[in-house]
């Protein structure tokens, strides 16, 4: 069953120096209980995509067009109050920096209780009990309810933000680089934690620049470049046989234990999203670029459950 379907979503930032097309025609879907990872470089629009799903794109950004269907209802058509009820209870989000994503002035327990009573009519004592259970479910002891954020380590704080995000049993958890600020061991534990929630039926959308991290746990993976998804499909297939030259290059620039000693790098820089190059946005950096790549944008092609947007796989060119 499809939980979330994003169709042709466009999010633009209207800055003084021009329109930044941060998300430019993105389509993807997440099934119930599925883990989708969105992978891309900094500035490719992956975080904007995450914010857009919650309709929290900061100004001057605006969702220009497209549809975001959650169980069939278009979130972009909901009123403000209806959308507010979706946030936290149906879709919730964990942010990159656990150091600043908790209110410094309030105890952990109070912050979890706040999130619960926001959506459910529970009395405070019951909500407190739930808060303690939630802390236990993320591997923290229940006496943490009386601690302040500054008394916790980064990993502990991220566990708390996950507990808050999971407090209302959302159908979809969006995690925007949840482990970037943490060390590798803690990163692994946090990922275990998120995987545990997935096993209980929550769908996960992980936004990351870490391909290795995404490859390890995801069911599906979407490779994003300059505001567009260039390749999308089941994780094993994309990792084992990437089709898009960008995915290939990204994989070859990820260190492995058994592999070539020297890492490949992708020459050049990601394009300025105010003036993206014509045609395929990757063509100036692509070593397989054809003539048509700089002239016409490649249409996404669907081949047995995978999607790729590249002229190399288009029948017309051969």
């Amino acid at each position: 069953m499809t939980l979330l379907r994003v169709e042709n979503l466009k999010v633009h930032y209207y800055t003084l120096s021009g329109i930044v097309r941060a998300v430019d025609g993105v389509s993807l879907s997440i099934e119930k209980g599925e883990w989708l990872s969105v992978v891309g470089e900094s500035g490719c629009g992956k975080s904007t995509l995450a914010y857009a799903i919650l309709r929290l794109v900061p100004p001057p950004g605006r969702i220009v067009s497209g549809r975001i269907l959650l169980d069939g209802t278009d979130l972009l058509r909901l009123g403000g109050e209806e959308m507010r009820r979706v946030r936290g209870s149906r879709i919730s989000m964990v942010f990159q920096d656990p150091m600043t994503s908790l209110d410094p002035l309030r105890k952990i327990g109070d912050q979890i209780v706040e999130a619960i009573v926001e959506h459910e009519e529970l009395d405070v004592r019951e909500a407190r009990k739930r808060a303690e259970e939630l802390l236990a479910s993320v591997g923290l002891t229940s006496d943490m309810v009386n601690r302040y954020p500054h008394q916790l380590s980064g990993g502990q704080r991220q566990r708390v933000t996950i507990a808050i995000a999971m407090s209302l049993n959302p159908s979809l958890l969006i995690a925007d680089e949840p482990t970037t600020a943490l060390d590798v061991i803690v990163q692994d534990r946090i990922m275990d934690l998120i995987e545990g929630f997935k096993a209980e039926g929550t769908s996960i959308m992980l936004v990351t620049h870490d391909l290795a991290l995404a490859a390890e746990r995801s069911d599906k993976i979407a490779i994003m470049y300059a505001g567009k998804i260039v390749e999308y499909g089941p994780v094993d297939e994309v990792i084992d046989s990437p089709m898009h030259p960008y995915s290939k290059a990204l994989l070859e620039s990820t260190p492995r234990l058994r592999g070539p000693k020297r890492l490949r790098y992708i020459p050049g820089y990601p394009p300025d999203l105010r003036r993206p190059p014509p045609g395929c946005r990757f063509h100036p950096r692509c070593e397989k670029a054809l003539k048509i790549c700089s002239q016409k944008e490649p249409e996404p092609r669907y081949l047995n459950g995978r999607m790729v947007a590249c002229w190399l796989y288009s029948g017309e060119v051969g």
Binding site: R87, S92, S101, D103, E118
Partner: peptide
């Protein structure tokens, strides 16, 4: 600040964000 953003992502109302956060 991220914690304000986080409150919004949890469905906090504007009034609550202003006066409680």
């Amino acid at each position: 600040q991220l914690f304000v953003e986080a409150a919004r992502a949890l469905g906090a109302r504007d009034r609550e964000i202003m006066f409680r956060y």
